[in-house]
Design a protein around this nucleic acid. Structure first.
Length: 793
DNA sequence: ATAGGGTTAG
């Protein structure tokens, strides 16, 4: 009767009741058999803590665990976090004399493997071998242990040893264990051998084996091989399809992946969460966030339950298109489904939080991102947490904050090693600030830690950093030393030459890129046209613009038209620029009108300037730069009433001019100056040096260009005096703190002021420094009175 | 025992 009751309770998956019955019968009736049955079912139902409770209880009631009990207990120990328990059960095995039982020992190897205790696993395994009782399951267990411990090389070594040295024939499990190892090591040759073995022994019929083979080829990028196996599989399941879909997606054949996805739907194969997540991730990785969101909607309609992977992919999609609204929706969904759910994997929570930080930063809510970042305890953060926040600051916040956070990361007590992504983000921040010294330090760090040789994009970031920090020669050296390059490498180098007024070099790099077999894309042409316009190569630029569609199949976008307006405008060909705009096949965006407006400032033309400014303000009424430009145009023509009108308009609409800010890398860190800044400790000396210099260059014939004095329309008190402009202050500080002969590197957030440019050229004749000035548009290398921009700025 | 995920550059 009692055993009948126990059996019923187990069948109803109610082991708690079964245990109660069992306890009441103790110690008279039940046998070890019933304890074992109970334990087995508790394992099956994943009541892992209960397994250990039962294991202890049976001993308290005087029953000895046997060769049947131990494997289940080890199974539970392996899946529970505390590894101590496993070791104590190991001791019990020895105490009860089961250390020569192959079943028990195999389970022990597996348990130690799951707990990450590889040495213990290996020791038990070796003892099995010494006793000569190791079987294929033992070998599978030790291989699996190495796989789980991330030691893939050893896993493969053990597998080879089992086959070659011990002549043990792999079974289905062995193959399914080892093929993913081949896949992740890209060891397709060994994978192919194992595939052959599986074919000869009829194991490919097994759907698990077939899937593992397909996946191995797919992960090695051999989609044709994968497809052949896939086509021949008699039995396919959703895993087989998923392996193909992700395979295509990962080698960049997303179209094929989507086609298979469609086919799955046509053939009514039940899509699971993996399928949906893979498609969502595929779209997200290609910056197609809205498509990702749409697939997510379809997934919900189909009733498939999203999980962590789905949501993380979806967040990445929201981030890629910067859609805060959908990002917030996903956030609340994640709270309901993951973050507020008890007892889930803390690693999952972190993945979601990392995705959220990234999403908020990319949706320009850097403050929210920062709050989330700060809300995680330091010891919970991983390298991605740091990286997304550093990248968020670098791209959407203050680049300074990015660098501060990067150095904070390096100084953490529990050191988290930056990875290539982290380095890339830090270098981006350096690029924005032209922080050459820090950039060089990071370059050294990269060399010491062998990042560069591994990752093309780290080297590309270095090229970008050197290019934008005023050292094109260093950029060229990095480029020359690269073992592998891609289109971005070439384009980054071209940007460097273009910004430094070396248009011919930029075009030479373009030709070399073509000869090396790389196809230029839209971005490449922006860089080519930019280089032409900043060197005054109008005809060259027109030639490239006219050929890009026919010769290279790149249809000019609005950004290319803006480059052309800039090119013609800088050369003073304003009417042609206007004609080009009027003939554009698409609506001009603000960047086009800004280019025309700037040209009207450079080559004074009030009517056209007003036209451009009006169009611009229709599109973007909050652009402070356009007000400033127009006001400068009026000032240049001495139309003070119009200047005053613009000023009052700005005051009325509460549009503030972004303050000009310049910074310079001094011996002791970087010093930043705003217009009329007197906050620096050396302020007095700076103003004195500047006053002296101005007097001296005036004697040489320098005449202040007063039209630039009205640059700072919103703050008459501070900014009206030309010599208080931030770039002049930065120069004075540079002179004050640099050793004789050393170049002074100044960076300005806006365009350099025309009067400052003239003044600095004069000053360069009477000081012993080359001046390298980067503004928001390009570099000016100023030396002994002449500037590399040759007027094209 | 097999399949899916976050951070990067011109």
């Amino acid at each position: 009767m009692a055993t009948y009751l126990i059996g019923t309770y187990i069948a109803c998956e109610a082991p708690v009741h079964a245990i109660k019955v069992l306890e009441r019968l103790v110690p008279s009736q039940p046998t070890v058999y019933w304890w074992n049955v109970l334990i087995r079912h508790a394992v099956r139902l994943r009541f892992l803590e209960d397994v250990l409770v039962l294991y202890r209880k049976m001993q308290r009631f005087g029953w000895k665990p046997d060769h049947y009990t131990f494997p289940f207990v080890f199974k539970a120990c392996g899946d529970l976090p505390s590894f101590r328990r496993g070791a104590s059960v190991h001791a019990a095995v020895c105490a009860n004399g089961f250390e020569s039982n192959v079943f028990v020992c195999n389970a022990m190897v597996a348990m130690y493997g799951r707990c990450g205790m590889l040495d213990d696993a290996r020791q038990v395994f070796d003892e099995l071998c010494v006793r000569g009782i190791g079987d294929v399951v033992s070998w599978n267990s030790i291989v699996a242990a190495y796989v789980q411990g991330g030691n893939k090389k050893n896993a493969l070594k053990m597998f080879t040893r089992m086959v070659d040295d011990h002549r043990i024939c792999p079974d289905v499990v062995s193959i399914v264990n080892i093929l993913p190892v081949c896949a992740s090591l890209s060891a397709w040759l060994q994978g192919k051998e194992i595939h052959g073995f599986a074919v000869r022994n009829g194991l490919v019929e097994d759907v698990f084996v077939g899937n593992a083979v397909v996946d191995m080829y797919a992960k090695c990028g051999m989609m044709d091989e994968a497809n052949k196996v896939f086509e021949r599989m008699m039995v396919k399941d959703v895993v087989s399809w998923n392996a193909m879909v992700t395979g295509y997606s990962q080698i960049g054949r997303f179209e094929d992946a989507l086609a298979l996805f469609e086919k799955m739907r046509e053939e009514k194969i039940e899509l699971n969460v993996v399928t949906w997540s893979a498609v969502i991730a595929g779209y997200a990785q290609r910056d197609h966030g809205y498509e990702a969101l749409d697939v997510f909607r379809q997934m919900q309609v189909c009733g498939s339950e999203p999980n962590v992977v789905t949501l993380v992919s979806l967040l990445s999609g929201c981030a890629s298109v910067g859609t805060l609204l959908h990002g917030k929706e996903t956030h609340s969904y994640a709270i309901k489904r993951i973050l507020d759910v008890d007892g889930n994997d803390p690693g999952d929570d972190l993945m979601i939080i990392n995705g959220l930080i990234d999403m908020y930063a990319k949706c320009k809510s850097v403050k929210v991102a920062q709050m989330m970042f700060d809300s995680i305890a330091t010891k919970e953060k991983n390298v991605v947490t740091w990286t997304v926040m550093i990248g968020g600051y670098a791209q959407h916040g203050e680049a300074n904050d990015a660098l501060e956070l990067f150095s904070k990361m390096l100084g953490q007590e529990i050191f988290i090693k930056p990875n290539a992504f982290t380095i890339a983000c830090a270098l981006m921040a350096c690029s924005r600030l032209a922080a050459l010294r820090l950039g060089k330090q990071i370059h050294c760090y990269v060399l010491r830690n062998q990042y560069e040789s591994m990752v093309v994009f780290v080297a590309n970031c270095l090229i970008d950093m050197y290019s934008k920090s005023g050292d094109v020669d260093a950029a060229q050296v990095v480029f020359d030393n690269m073992k592998q390059r891609n289109a971005v490498s070439w384009t980054s180098l071209m940007t460097g030459y273009g910004m430094h007024g070396c248009g011919e070099d930029a075009l030479r790099v373009f030709d070399e890129m073509r000869r090396a077999g790389w196809m230029p894309d839209g971005v490449t042409f922006v860089v080519v046209l930019y280089a032409c316009s900043h060197t005054g190569m109008v005809e060259q630029g027109m030639k490239y613009f006219n050929s890009m569609s026919d010769e290279y199949g790149v249809v000019p976008g609005v950004e290319h038209y803006a480059c052309m307006v800039d090119l013609l405008g800088r050369a003073g060909r304003l009417d042609e620029a206007l004609k080009l705009i009027e003939g554009m096949p698409m609506e001009p965006t603000p960047i086009v009108w800004v280019a025309l407006l700037s040209a009207c400032r450079l080559h004074p033309n009030i009517e056209l300037g007003e036209h451009a400014a009006n169009r611009l303000l229709e599109l973007e009424s909050e652009n402070d730069g356009s007000y400033t430009l127009l006001s400068n145009i009026y000032a240049n023509a001495r139309r003070w009433k119009d200047v005053a009108r613009i000023r009052s308009l700005m005051r009325h609409t509460r549009i503030k001019k972004r303050p000009g800010c310049s910074w310079v890398e001094g011996k002791k860190g970087t010093a930043a100056f705003f217009v009329g800044d007197r906050s620096h400790p050396l302020s007095q000396e700076i103003y004195k040096i500047l006053g002296d210099l101005i007097l001296r260059i005036k004697a040489m014939g320098y005449v202040p260009e007063t039209s630039f004095a009205l640059h700072d329309v919103d703050d008459e008190e501070k900014g009206d005096l030309l010599f208080e402009h931030s770039e002049k202050l930065a120069l004075a500080y540079g002179i004050l703190t640099s050793p004789a002969g050393a170049p002074i590197r100044i960076t300005k957030n806006l365009r350099v002021c025309g009067d400052c440019h003239t003044a600095i050229c004069y000053i360069s004749t009477i000081i012993d420094h080359e001046i390298i000035l980067r503004d928001s548009s390009r570099f000016h290398h100023i030396k002994k009175g002449s500037c590399s921009c040759k007027g094209y700025w």
